[in-house]
């Protein structure tokens, strides 16, 4: 994935199905809660952005809503490419 794709909402959505987990950059977050509010299955993404822990949650659909809607670019997808690891 090209660097510039990382922060674009549309490509964030597009990449979602192939990507792994949502990872926050706490220093950018102001705890407004737009991420949690828009999560279709009710994961408290805001809390992850507070603690700095990636959303490692089997229920996460990686739909990209939180990444796309965060007004401050706190969230991004980090790939957990299991196949690549398995191949090594």
């Amino acid at each position: 994935m090209a660097l510039r794709d990382l922060f674009r909402p549309e490509s964030a959505r597009h990449k979602a199905s192939s990507a792994g987990q949502v990872t926050p950059d706490s220093a950018r977050c102001v705890q407004c809660g737009i991420c949690s509010f828009n999560c279709p299955i009710g994961i408290d993404v805001r809390r992850h952005a507070w603690t700095g822990e990636a959303v490692v949650n089997s229920r996460c659909l990686t739909c990209g809503e939180c990444v796309a809607r965060c007004p401050r670019g706190v969230l991004r997808f980090e790939r957990t490419d299991l196949f690549a690891e398995a191949a090594q």
């Binding site: 102001v30 705890q31 407004c32 809660g33 737009i34 509010f37 007004p71």
Partner: peptide, 15 residues
């Protein structure tokens, strides 16, 4: 509460 979030409350994006 999130003081910066008040901006999104005013715009109606957040309750």
């Amino acid at each position: 509460y999130s003081r910066p979030g008040l901006a999104y409350y005013l715009t109606g994006e957040m309750m």
